[in-house]
Design a protein around this nucleic acid. Sequence first.
DNA 1: CATGCCCTAGCAACCGGTTGCAGGAACCTT
DNA 2: AAGGTTCCTGCAACCGGTTGCTAGGGCATG
Lengths: 320, 320
Amino acid sequence: MTATIKDVARACGVHVSTVSRTFSAPHLVNPATRSRVMAAADDLGYRPNRAARALTTGRTFNLGLIVADIANPFFPPLIKAAQSQARGRDYHVFVADTDEDPRVEEELIRTFTKQVDGVLLCSPRLSNRMIERLAEDVPFVVVNRRIKGMPAVLMNVAQGAKHALEHLTGLGHRRIALVSGPIGSWTSNEMQGVAAEAPGLDLVFFGPNQPTEAGGLAVAADVAACGATAVLAYNDLVALGLIEGLTAMEIGVPDQISVIGFDDILPGRLNRPKLTTVAMPAVAAGRMAVDLLLQSGGEGATVTLDTALIVRESTGRAQK
Amino acid sequence: MTATIKDVARACGVHVSTVSRTFSAPHLVNPATRSRVMAAADDLGYRPNRAARALTTGRTFNLGLIVADIANPFFPPLIKAAQSQARGRDYHVFVADTDEDPRVEEELIRTFTKQVDGVLLCSPRLSNRMIERLAEDVPFVVVNRRIKGMPAVLMNVAQGAKHALEHLTGLGHRRIALVSGPIGSWTSNEMQGVAAEAPGLDLVFFGPNQPTEAGGLAVAADVAACGATAVLAYNDLVALGLIEGLTAMEIGVPDQISVIGFDDILPGRLNRPKLTTVAMPAVAAGRMAVDLLLQSGGEGATVTLDTALIVRESTGRAQK
DNA sequence: CATGCCCTAGCAACCGGTTGCAGGAACCTT
DNA sequence: AAGGTTCCTGCAACCGGTTGCTAGGGCATG
């Protein structure tokens, strides 16, 4: 068994409270005693039990981070940014994946409650109502979702979609397919909202779709058949799936159809043709979300981060 | 605040121990009482505090999973497999990323101690000695590392490397570059071991390298200059970085140099040319690791999983 | 009717720490 | 020398549950 505070107390003949204070309030204990305690402690290999400490203090120095799909390359940079930001503030981040399943998401949040001081909820699939209810038990910061009164980090998807559409119309495209993501995705709604308002476009909607390569592959045939000369995809994985499907049907990208994704993930940069995409500020979002969570004061603060269109090789002039 | 066991006890006029038993040993409480307690409990929205429970029972029903780099697409499938396997046994998995830093790795293990019932250590960068010491405080299963007396899930890297080399020699390659990974990587050592024993080869070693695309990019020039006609890379990311670097120098893959990676990640399948690689059984490893951890009985059990060479487009005949 | 057993629920100690309070010792003041 | 501070340390209650022990009520048995 690991050494406890009692073992240390016994080993150097002081009361447990003195040992406790040596670690949590050193200025309250006499330097001489303190060093005796420290010596005994690392002699026994004593480490305070964080879970037990949390029971009385109410603080665990842990944060939870919940994502829909850890296999989506969009998330890892966000996760790493959150972890390093938290580390700088003496916090640790535990990550969990919901497999895009709202029930698992709820279950995980319940598990995190009381084991962490706050939860970063990235691209949640739960309903706003449910999230509000769960927020009574543990502080949240939500990423890519707007919920009234709840701190949020948003990425300016609308702006990105607008630039993407302008880019396409500038290349002469008029009939454009919009391949959306899963139900309940805020990002997807934002995209559709912007597109619907854009003047002079002939839009074709496809959705809902799985936000993965498989999802893109699955709609490739329908997109090809609808007569659109360009596609705006929910994210890069979907875009890559689309390109794969189109290529298999011998439809050239960008010669016959232009494709734009969202996120700017590594496989998109390595793909041939290199993917034109709207870059999402994942790293900044991860950092910001942690900051928002830790400065608990800022209750309803909402931060919106800019996106940027990155033109590469998967878009070109519309063919007549 | 959330309701505690006391609130429930007060609400229905029983002692806390009765409430406790209602949840952890229902057969010990009278059905009538039990349902009164249950009613009061979900009326108040009571949920047992898992951290507090763990303090007395010693079981948290959480597992920790530590990886070197969550952004490496090799890990997510393993993580997801572990999570779903654990979920089936009423456990939750918390993931943490070490950023390839042994100190962070140690720190994270220490944090997990007492907050989880066991830790899955994937491709650790710590020394065997240190891992053995830490194993006194929390049970481990190690993935891709062999440590005496410690349960491990290994992937048959040696077999994969052998097949890869045979494939290359079959195509007429003799001078082969070996681009290894970070220091302390068991996988890297296995690869070098096999290569060194292979007869009739003219090997050139490069390493250590970062196990990322950037690592591959960085050695591309040296590899090109060494006169090898084929490369065996530490993993797919390194292989992709190499191909990118070689392509930038207008060296054709596979026409002038053949490249083989390890792992079989998504970007490798989407790359042009599609990457020839040794597929690692990540999903099976994740599942198996959880099983090994939970059937704590099997102390020193070691499981070795097969790998498979997948020939795609990045390897070809050696040119004269 | 006395005896004995089973079922149920309360009591209290415990898990590993934290913290408000009180008291003794040493030091300073006047 | 008496009185007031300051500094340090021990005491004990508490965080939210768990669990061995005990005791009372109900029931069957002899």
